[in-house]
Design a protein around this nucleic acid. Structure first.
Lengths: 224, 224
DNA sequence: GCCTGTGAACCTTTTCACAGCA
DNA sequence: TGCTGTGAAAAGGTTCACAGGC
């Protein structure tokens, strides 16, 4: 284990590392050797102090008076984020959203390979989406273990979410990305992140309403 | 303007109001008259102290020794979130994701009516998705104004995101939900929230990796 | 001279603990 | 007695401002 990976990196910083990663990828393609915290901040849509603080948690990878070496920093961030590995992914719930996610090239790009599609509807089982055939939820445990799935994407209706999450966890999945509009709990040692479209719209609605009635200023930046 | 709507409600609280709203809707259907902060917390996946603090920003709507009146609280939260109105929505970018969002019944449910679908691809223009025909991006300004669109959903490729955001803002849109994997800035007075699948997976990957190498505990709850 | 790295100050959010009221 | 409402304490995150090395 390296010195950097032993540090405790704040959650807020972890959530921004992917932004820096993306910005650096775009910069790297333009053959730029070094980048200042100011420029990186601009590309990532944050401020320079935050960039420097965030990167300092990884280690002292910059050079005073010069900036950060793009290639080196990219390498370090990839390593921290686990992007140097491949993570096999399963999508459960092949409805509108699940199908869109299955077809979404862009995950695949950086090591997140969708290997398994699962649905409860017998009419869908066996149906091919891209290169994959939909598997029955009855075979969840088996197929998840077979493919050593680490990350599960939950795109089922709300009513099925907790049950499917439990099955995924039982089958050894320790990271879940939950698109179902439902509160869903997982045991200690399993991470879950939620993406909820209805909630996002409702938050926008709140500020929209405030703008309409008073002259309140909306928030400019988001944590996640 | 009411007393409650004059208070400043913390951003973190605003982001949780939809959770309470949903929990209360589910409770209301079960004909329960009152609910304790403890029970509401359980349903919303947070803790009771947070519920009480959050609700206290809206006003003193509970009864000591009893709890909160479900119907009344539901009404107050709807009002705060602007769910008593209808917000016309436009989706720009009718690819995999845009199409899934267009077909997603569930927005529509609570006042977010998708009225306009926009794409840049001439082959798609005129094509029907559900009850709506796809409109050309050349007509964005016109159609957005015509429908008094308040909320725009951005589901274009990253490369088009900033340009489309600018056009939406120019056409009078003041809330944007951005699914494009790109940093995108909007002027003061416009809200933007980001949903980025790749970033979510990368965050999961970070903690997944930590669990694999050390025995670090992942975070249990998320802000948004 | 320039830009990073970082303590210190500041602000936001969460949690605690209990007074206050039905 | 039971559960809300809320000051106060604690934790977490952001920004400032400048020392420190290239």
């Amino acid at each position: 284990m390296t010195a950097a990976s032993r540090r405790r990196i704040p959650e807020a910083t972890v959530a921004r590392l992917p932004l820096y990663y993306r910005a650096l990828m775009e910069t790297g393609e333009r053959q730029v050797a070094t980048i200042s915290s100011e420029r990186l901040a601009e590309l990532a849509g944050v401020n320079a102090a935050k960039v420097r603080k965030d990167l300092s948690y990884l280690g002292s990878y910059g050079t005073r008076g010069v900036g950060y070496d793009v290639e080196y920093l990219l390498h370090e961030i990839s390593r921290e984020l686990g992007l140097t590995r491949d993570w096999p992914v399963a999508i459960v719930g092949i409805g509108n959203l699940g199908r869109a996610l299955a077809n979404y090239r862009g995950f695949g790009a950086r090591g997140f390979r969708v290997e398994v599609l699962i649905d409860a509807d017998p009419a869908l089982v066996g149906h091919r989406i891209g290169e994959l055939a939909v598997v029955s939820i009855d075979d969840l445990d088996e197929v998840v273990r077979e493919h050593s799935i680490a990350i599960g994407i939950l795109a089922t209706p709300a009513s099925a979410a907790q049950d499917v999450a439990d099955r995924l966890v039982a089958a050894g999945v320790t990271s879940i990305l939950n698109f179902a509009p439902a509160v869903c709990s997982v045991p200690e040692g399993v991470s879950m992140r939620k993406v909820d479209l209805a909630i996002e719209l409702q938050i926008l609605s709140f500020y929209q309403l405030r703008r309409a009635t008073s002259g309140a200023t909306p928030p400019r930046e988001r944590a996640g």
